[in-house]
Design a protein around this nucleic acid. Sequence first.
DNA 1: GCTTGACCCTGTAGCGGCTACAGGGTGTGT
DNA 2: ACACACCCTGTAGCCGCTACAGGGTCAAGC
Lengths: 144, 144
Amino acid sequence: MKIGELAKAAHVEVETIRYYERIGLLPAPARSDNGYRAYAGMHLERLAFIRHCRTLDIALADITRLLRFVDDPSAECAEVNTLIDTQLARIRARLDSLRTLEQQLVVLRSQCDAPDRAAQCGILHELEAPTLGDACVCHDERRQ
Amino acid sequence: MKIGELAKAAHVEVETIRYYERIGLLPAPARSDNGYRAYAGMHLERLAFIRHCRTLDIALADITRLLRFVDDPSAECAEVNTLIDTQLARIRARLDSLRTLEQQLVVLRSQCDAPDRAAQCGILHELEAPTLGDACVCHDERRQ
DNA sequence: GCTTGACCCTGTAGCGGCTACAGGGTGTGT
DNA sequence: ACACACCCTGTAGCCGCTACAGGGTCAAGC
Ligand SMILES: [Zn+2]
Ligand SMILES: [Zn+2]
Ligand SMILES: [Zn+2]
Ligand SMILES: [Zn+2]
């Protein structure tokens, strides 16, 4: 299997595959006489595993750790659970902050419904507010 | 005002201020005889504006556009509204995908409650699933 | 045999928004 | 005289790719 074929099979860009090899995530394959990379089924399996993890937004460093369990099936998998829990906590923290952000933007947006000259714009006024030491409407609940 | 004083006043790292100057977001200040940057009140105002926008996760390029309205108070502010709307749409799209992600991780996590050897781990099995062309529990609703 | 085009190779730089140095100069206090 | 905090420039690193530049290889069609 040449790199382009592997890329198609795994729905990944060719450059991404070379990048994974460069950082040591995907093992370097054998080479054909012409120097082309020659992949085996194992590489497709790994790449599919990696991409599956990536759709779950798992970091490449963490995927490396997960792959160690794939390679050593007799190891205790407790670390896997911890890793997923950490990932979940990360996502939930991000969700919380994005929900706050959404509300702040909604409030900010409501400050200008009839676009006029910038000098009168409620949005710009709010964005300038903390400049003057005032509180802003968007961040009134809890600061920062 | 020296850079360290400005940094404290705006709760920003010194390096961040120099970075903003380098990319043209914060105007280069006058220099003292010793070559130190000498900031005026206007710089603190700008920096506060920028940081306020950043807490709303507005991109630096968009902040540049917003600052043009600050500098030209007679301009029509319609573009400001559009910019905030776009920002809100971006945040909401990200929220949607993170909510999906959270559910996928919850399902994945439920596949292993009693850590054992990796060979038996339901989480690792699920992550390997698409390798074998099978559907996975985490992505069963809508693919990708 | 010769050209076209699709593919492959290496190496490097760019994205965003900082952060962290290295290697130097300056200013203040004791 | 010395320490120490601060300032300067310039460069490289973080993440996960993406996009070249500048070359080599191979199969099909003329
Ligand atoms: Zn307005
Ligand atoms: Zn605010
Ligand atoms: Zn397990
Ligand atoms: Zn899945």
